[in-house]
Structure formats: C-alpha cells, structure tokens
C-alpha cells in the first residue's frame, strides 16, 4: 500500500493527483471503520494529519474560516465555541473524547452521512466550502455540495480545504436525539440559527432525509411572526414552527428508529430550539 504523508496542501493535492484512487485519511473515524469491516480496501492512502494549514481557523471581517482538518475537540475550544456555539454543541455529541480528538470537520463533510452531526449546523449557517485540486480552487455552497446519502459534489483529486460561515450569529443551537445519552448516532437532529439583525430564522435537520435538510417554508413562515425588536414570537408560533419543520422532513424507517418518531422528534426539537434561541435574542435585546 502506498501511503503519502504530505506536509502542505500543495503536496497533498499533488499526491492525490498522482494517485486519484487513494483513500483520503483525516481523523479516520469513518474510513477506518469501513476498512476494518472490509467495505473499503484501499491500495493507496493520502494522510492529511500533518497538513498544518488544514488545521487552522481565522476570522476575516464577519466570516469565520474553519480549516477542514479541525477536530471536533478543536471546535469545543472556548474562542471558537463563542462564535459558532451550535457547532461546538454538535461536536460535543460526537463519540467519546478519543473520537472527538481524531474526527474532523472535513471528514464529516466528505463522508456526508445524513446523520453527520456538524452538517445541520453548517447548513443552517449557509456554509460555503473551499475545495481544491491541482486543477484549481472553487467554492461550493454546502446546500448544493450534499447530493445524497454519502454522496457529494467532491471530484476525484479534490480536497475540502475549509468551510466558511458567519462569525456573528450568536443565537444558534443544535439539538440531537439518540437512544443513548452519549456516543450515539443521531436518530433526529435540528439546528436553528437566528439572525435577529435581519429578522431571519434558519433551520436544518439531520437523519430525516437522504441529506441534512433545510426547512425553507417553515423559515419563511416564522420570520414574519416574531417581534424582532424584542425577540418575542407571537403566541403559538414555536409550536406551529415545529409542525412546519416536521412537514419538510423526509424520514424513513430503519433499524435505528421509525419515520413517525423521527418526524415527531424534529417537531419537538425545532420548537424547543426556536424557543430557546429566541429567548437568547430577548435577553440580548433587553441587555
């Protein structure tokens, strides 16, 4: 097996151009499970752990750039968590500390599981992804990047370099149901991001469709039913918002849960997440 351990992004892209069939290895928390189960039999590996530039983050104006090599543990660091608290909340629900020390944002994006925990948050934040290959660079909206269960627009020879999200949306939240209190794959999850300045609510769901889904009709409906000066919604709005979000879910029955429960769970989670994020807005406005 050919194993390449590049030190720079250019070296990594060159290695991948050299072996387009190579398995890209970041934290290994997904691909090594596949290798151990015999589902993947790589003959070449490009290991990204030594590419330091993938493991950094930076703020440019009101945009936060998250290197694809940041681990879930990195997302829990207080300075990052203060800017994207829902991403830290999502990271905290992933696995155990050893898994959080290994698994990466880029890995979560590339695996593109409908249950990937950072994905609903990044989707609700309208994240843009920086992709690169030896052919050049391009930027793709996460919304179009995810094309199906474990399917993306990523091309052969291409790497995810970074995700870019707003750095100034403090009212955001991630909630996730699993059948265990920790170390569990989402049965259903919801991310809500409120931008009180422009009066917009964004909501994304996980594990209730072939990809993480936005709930555009519910978002549009709710935006006009909140007093954005105070952050207070009209009576019954949160409950109706939950129902509308659930209507936009497309869950299935599988060995982890049922479609009926998943639809119910996103309704409850969306209602609760809206209530608590708006309560945060109300506190901020009052202060």
């Amino acid at each position: 097996m050919d194993v390449s351990v590049p030190r720079t992004l250019d070296e990594a892209l060159a290695a991948l151009a050299d072996r387009p069939d190579a398995m890209v290895l970041a934290g290994g928390t997904d691909v090594m499970v596949g290798v151990n189960a015999g589902r993947q039999t790589p003959t070449a590996v490009v290991a990204l752990r030594a590419v330091e530039e993938l493991r950094t983050w930076s703020v440019d104006g009101d945009r936060l750039r998250l290197g694809a090599g940041l681990t879930y543990a990195d997302l829990l660091a207080p300075d990052l968590a203060a800017m994207v608290p829902a991403l830290a909340q999502a990271a905290r629900t992933v696995g155990s500390p050893p898994i959080r020390n290994a698994g990466t944002v880029g890995g979560n994006l590339a695996t593109a599981s409908p249950a990937g925990d950072t994905l609903p948050v990044l989707l609700a934040l309208d994240a843009e992804l920086d992709l690169a290959s030896v052919e050049g660079r391009r930027t793709v909206a996460l919304r179009s990047f995810l094309t199906g269960p474990k399917r993306t627009q990523l091309r052969t020879g291409e790497l995810i370099v970074a995700a870019r999200v707003p750095a100034t949306r403090p009212h955001q939240e991630y909630r996730k149901v699993g059948v265990r209190n920790a170390m569990v794959i989402a049965v259903a999850s919801v991310a809500v991001v409120v931008d009180a300045d422009v009066g917009v609510v964004a909501c994304a769901m996980g594990s209730v469709g072939p990809t993480p889904l936005r709930a555009p009709r519910a978002e549009e409906w709710v935006a006009g039913r909140i007093d954005w000066g105070t952050g207070v919604p009209d009576a019954g709005v949160a409950a109706e918002f939950g129902r509308l979000v659930a209507e936009e879910s497309r869950p299935i029955d599988d060995h982890r849960s049922t479609a009926a429960y998943r639809r119910h769970a996103v309704e409850v989670l969306a209602r609760r997440a809206l209530e608590s994020t708006l309560a945060g807005v109300a506190r901020a406005e009052a202060a």
């Binding site: 629900t93 939240e173 909630r175 996730k176 149901v177 699993g178 569990v184 989670l269």
Partner: peptide, 16 residues
C-alpha cells in the same frame, strides 16, 4: 444538562 434525559444531545430543558 448532562444529568438530564438526552444529556449531551441537549434535547431536554429542565421543565420537560
């Protein structure tokens, strides 16, 4: 939070 049902998943607030 971590002592409530759902724990790390942050599903559940105290009144629930």
């Amino acid at each position: 939070l971590l002592s409530r049902p759902g724990a790390a998943g942050r599903t559940t607030d105290a009144p629930h």
